[in-house]
């Protein structure tokens, strides 16, 4: 019972927070990027923000086939890369699951009422001895892709 109540509250708080952010901020600055995440310090995502909002699922879907069947691990459209860059931390510095209703993936999907199941299988926080390697591969891919284009400002 306690869990159920607190989950509902988390949902409600997250929704209110998003609504507040979306209405209070000017259109150009509207952002649901989690404060304190690596992404919060960057000017843009791996593709222009407008494209990411509408098509991130397409990017990830094409990438998953190249990775699972071809073994290619150097892509800027890496889900492990999304998690690494957008992960938030609690007061103790512990990573908070990214699909939680007040976090980057969870908050937006809750807002648009999309049931997200990537994290039924994928780790919702960077975990295990290879998390660093996965993130590093994605970071390098972003650097290479954006070299010269200047889309990401560190």
């Amino acid at each position: 019972m306690v869990t159920a109540v607190s989950t509902t509250r988390t949902h409600a708080v997250a929704l209110l927070w998003i609504l507040a952010v979306l209405t209070a901020m000017p259109a150009s600055a509207r952002s649901t990027v989690v404060p304190g995440s690596e992404a919060a310090g960057l000017g843009a995502c791996v593709e222009p923000t407008e494209l990411m909002r509408r098509q991130h699922m397409e990017f990830i879907k094409h990438q998953r086939d190249r990775t699972v069947h071809g073994g290619i691990r150097t892509s800027k459209h890496s889900l492990a890369g999304c998690v690494e860059c957008h992960i938030g931390h609690d007061a103790q510095g512990q990573a908070v699951p990214i699909d939680r209703a007040d976090q980057f993936c969870g908050a937006c999907h809750a807002y648009v009422a999309v049931d997200l199941n990537c994290f039924d299988c994928h780790a919702a926080v960077p975990r295990g001895p290879m998390a660093g390697s996965l993130a590093e591969a994605a970071r390098r891919a972003v650097d290479e892709a954006q070299h010269g284009q200047g889309a990401v400002q560190p």
Partner: peptide, 24 residues
């Protein structure tokens, strides 16, 4: 789950010769 081994309910799985090691 570990970042390098996504796995979950409703799927079949088996030894993949440590495919993450191969790819890295």
């Amino acid at each position: 789950q570990l970042s390098h081994v996504p796995r979950g309910k409703g799927c079949v799985e088996s030894c993949n010769l440590c495919v993450h090691r191969r790819d890295f």
